[in-house]
Amino acid sequence: MSSRDDILGRVRAGLHRNASNAAVAREEMLAALTNRSQGPKPGIDAEPKALLERFRLKSEQQSSTVDIVAQESDVPAAVARYLAAMNLPKSAVAWPSLARLDWAAAGLQVEGRGARDADLVGITGCFCAVAETGTLMVCSSPDTPATVSLLPETHIAVVHASRILAYMEDAWAVARKELGALPRAVNFISGPSRTGDIEQTIVLGAHGPYRVHLVIVSD
């Protein structure tokens, strides 16, 4: 007998599985998968300004820094300002989807591709953002490679205010509508990578970025 049959066989025996209770359970399973009922959620003011404010506050609590600009064309200048203020290099890797922005005009050298170990600054967008916890939802695709938010020591993310949603549940609904099936990797990112493994002392910059800077486009 295969291990699969053996394991499932013992699970079925434990549950006293038979044809009639299987039919009932299948109905319930189908209902759960179709209804996608949601659990209790903390109350959040869903008015756009309030969402932006909560997202900013929660992001800062997660040790991200936040800048707000009026339109997308302001992003390269905002990124250049941040890099200069932090004394970071003026060259970066970015999602190919962001290569269309005029980075050179802001004095930046930006290459649209997947990240390599040597890249120090990575610029990404996000699929959407979650105000409840101050979290970016980042989806992988050829135009939005996962490495850009992971390998560089500094991660800069462009967030459109219109994409800030109240809850993670809202993000799933948008993903189903816009993407259909889930991409290979959905990463929810809340601030720089961290560890508390030595004496429970929180240190930023474990294996991923040391710092996360958000440029919110208020649209």
Binding site: K58, Q62, R113, G114, T133, T135, S140, S141, P142, P145, A146, T147, A181, L182, P183, R184, A185, V186, N187, F188, I189, S190, G191, P192, S193, R194, G196, G208
Partner: peptide, 24 residues
């Protein structure tokens, strides 16, 4: 677990790299 409202990373991984993707 750690008293965080959400962990730093929360990854939902589905399937394998598509041929045109850079990573995965």
């Amino acid at each position: 677990a750690t008293g965080q409202s959400i962990s730093n990373y929360f990854s939902i991984l589905t399937g394998v790299k598509k041929p045109e993707e850079h990573d995965g």
